[in-house]
């Protein structure tokens, strides 16, 4: 059944696929910094060449008890549990924005520890459950 022609086509396809996988791997690898939708506070601490006037996105968790709201702005802290960054923002926040939840802030860095956001996106996690269950879990923790 495996004639010469079939063998030739099999080797052609495997060669094509292998070279494609390698090519795609290197393309994605070299584009990593562009593919990342946001940087974590640790990424920002570690990076050597920060461009302060370019728009970037910082993401992580909103630190517990860090949200302070006054008439002009909302201040909070984004943490990835290793490093933190202060964020100041004026405007409306999405419904799911809350302490202890994921967040992505879009804006400019003032320095390595201070970020001025002009847009806030809420990042959702992969857990889905009914509200009664969540209340039950809270009680159990207490």
């Amino acid at each position: 059944m495996l004639t010469k022609k079939v063998k030739k086509r099999v080797s052609f396809l495997s060669l094509l696929l292998i070279s494609l996988v390698i090519a795609v791997f290197f393309i994605l690898k070299s584009l990593t910094s562009n593919i990342l939708y946001f940087k974590s506070p640790t990424d920002i601490q570690l990076s050597q060449d920060i461009i302060f006037n370019k728009k970037i996105r910082v993401g992580g968790m909103v630190k517990k008890n860090s949200i302070k709201i006054n008439a002009q702005e909302i201040k909070f802290v984004i943490t990835d549990l290793k490093n933190e960054i202060f964020v100041s923002y004026s405007g409306t926040v999405p419904n799911l924005f809350s302490e202890g939840k994921g967040v992505v802030a879009e804006g400019k860095l003032k320095d390595k520890n201070f970020f001025i956001a002009d847009r806030i996106l809420a990042k959702h996690d992969e857990k889905y459950m009914p509200p009664e269950l969540k209340d039950l879990m809270k009680k159990n923790v207490k």
């Binding site: 939708y37 974590s40 959702h124 996690d125 992969e126 857990k127 459950m129 269950l133």
Partner: peptide, 20 residues
């Protein structure tokens, strides 16, 4: 692999799921 706005998969290939 990357930081994305989209959340990770709720249903894993091994059959476990974080959906109630």
């Amino acid at each position: 692999w990357w930081n994305t706005l989209h959340q990770p998969s709720s249903i894993k290939l091994d059959g476990t799921s974080s959906i109630h």
